[in-house]
Design a protein around this nucleic acid. Sequence first.
DNA 1: AAGATGACGTGCT
DNA 2: GAGCACGCCATCT
Length: 114
Amino acid sequence: MSTLSSIERIWFIVNLIPKGNVLPYGVVADFAGLPGRARYVSRALKLAPQNLTLPWHRVINSQGKISFANNTDAFQTQQQLLRLDGIEVNAGKISLSQYQWKPDIATLVMTLPF
DNA sequence: AAGATGACGTGCT
DNA sequence: GAGCACGCCATCT
């Protein structure tokens, strides 16, 4: 049984987010066993190697919004990727009904070995 | 080595 | 709701 580093656990969790779902940074941190470490999730995504092809765009902030400034390329990219997922986004804001993560993710996470 | 930074969150005005 | 002040802490300068 391999031991995952904290950054690897974050990548692992993000990779579990299904199309059509979004998850706040803070919840990803909680699921990765790093409560209160939402900022570390953003760092982990920035540091993630390209070959992991993580669904990074499904991670948003606790306000239900995209965390990039709205005049950046990254903002536009994330918004487009979310729409391709079938998620409604208006000016970087995900509608409340879709903002809530679905329970199946949480139950799945609870079976993880960390 | 030391200070600044930031794809965050929470609590308070 | 909009700011603002903190707390957080691995990376970056």
